[in-house]
Computed example of a mutant assay.
Amino acid sequence: MIIVMALASDAFLTPENGWNILRQISVNLCLSIGMTLIILSGGIDLSGGAILALAGAVAAGLMKNGIGIPAIDVLLQFTLAGAIVGAVVVGMVLGWFNGFVITKFRIPPFVATLGMLSIARGLTMLWTGGFPITGLGEGFGFIGTGTFMGIPMPVWIASLLVTAFVVITKKTRFGRHLYAVGGNERAALLTGLRVNRVKIWVYTLGGALAGVAGVLVTARLDSAQPNAGMGYELDAIAAVVIGGTSLSGGRGSIMGTVLGCLIIGVLNNGLFLLDVSPFWQQVIKGMVILIAVAIDKASPRNRSD
């Protein structure tokens, strides 16, 4: 794909475009890491883009306006760090709620997260009043557009998260339990694993990572858009599946997801440089997802016959 894009566009194989691709996939990578954990556990999350939007709006609102408490005539102001923590906490709470509903009430993940998608979108509109929150300052904008040692900040953040979750999934007890639950939930339960706790943690981490992605999007645009993140869960699921993570759970890796994000990023970037219609881009990405799932299902390890 890189060879085809390079031959089709002179602007593709340039250092500037290379950094641009890495910067663009950073947001998707944050979401996709959380999606990988969830799919490894045998679940799915359709609310990532909506949680991203709400978390970004909360960070922007806290940074610019703070929180007023009319009953005691107090206005709480937030620093940059406080606003970021607030956004991540919002993501964690919504992710925890997803996990709680799925484990406590036995609601299928597809249905539970679809409901959360609507809830988070509605809360975003209520928080913003349907209007963008702009003018967030240079400090906040540096997170999305600044560089450190010549490397864009979003790339640093995504790289640190990748490193952390590679270690978590490969070298910790939680990682082993995660693969066990996704591979065979009933067997994991019979061996004494706390399956529900693992699932709740997985969705909580997914929500927190969506919160980080929301901060990156908001900082890059210097604006919290009420409709931010629409369709982002599509790219995240696509990256995870293309990266080799099985939709049936128990098989896959974070590094595979990184490769999937790079494929999606190169595809998006190349189609943009070739001036392909955004509508056709959606068609092509949808076809890529279908092909990836078909290959996954055709794998001998996933065939029941």
Rank of each mutant, 00 (worst) to 15 (best):
T191V: 11
R301F: 12
L62K: 07
S304Y: 04
T191H: 09
W127H: 11
I39G: 01
L29F: 12
G130L: 02
G286Y: 09
P300C: 08
L161V: 15
A87K: 04
D305H: 05
L271Y: 09
M35A: 14
L136I: 09
D305F: 14
V181H: 10
L190P: 01
A236E: 02
T124R: 03
V241F: 04
L75R: 14
G270R: 04
L22G: 04
T128R: 05
I3C: 00
L94M: 15
N184I: 04
G144W: 08
I291D: 01
G252W: 09
M1R: 10
F100H: 11
A213H: 09
G56C: 06
I200N: 10
T79G: 15
G244M: 07
I151L: 11
I168L: 15
N302M: 12
L160C: 13
G99L: 03
I168C: 08
L273K: 07
G243N: 06
A236W: 07
F131T: 13
R220T: 06
G146N: 03
T36Q: 10
L94W: 05
G250K: 04
M116R: 06
V93S: 02
I69P: 00
L290N: 07
N28R: 09
T169V: 14
Q282I: 11
L62G: 05
H177Q: 14
I102P: 01
V293I: 15
M153A: 11
S26A: 15
A55D: 04
V212F: 11
I102C: 02
M149T: 08
L259I: 15
R301I: 12
T134I: 12
N28Q: 12
S304Q: 11
M255R: 07
R186Q: 13
G252P: 10
T191S: 15
A59H: 08
L54V: 02
T103E: 10
F140I: 06
V240S: 02
M116G: 04
M153H: 01
I284D: 03
R121E: 03
G192H: 07
T124C: 11
T204S: 15
R251A: 10
S32P: 09
N28P: 00
R301S: 13
D45N: 14
A60V: 02
I72V: 15
G231R: 08
Y203V: 08
L273R: 07
K170E: 15
G270T: 08
V241C: 05
A294N: 02
I33L: 12
I107F: 01
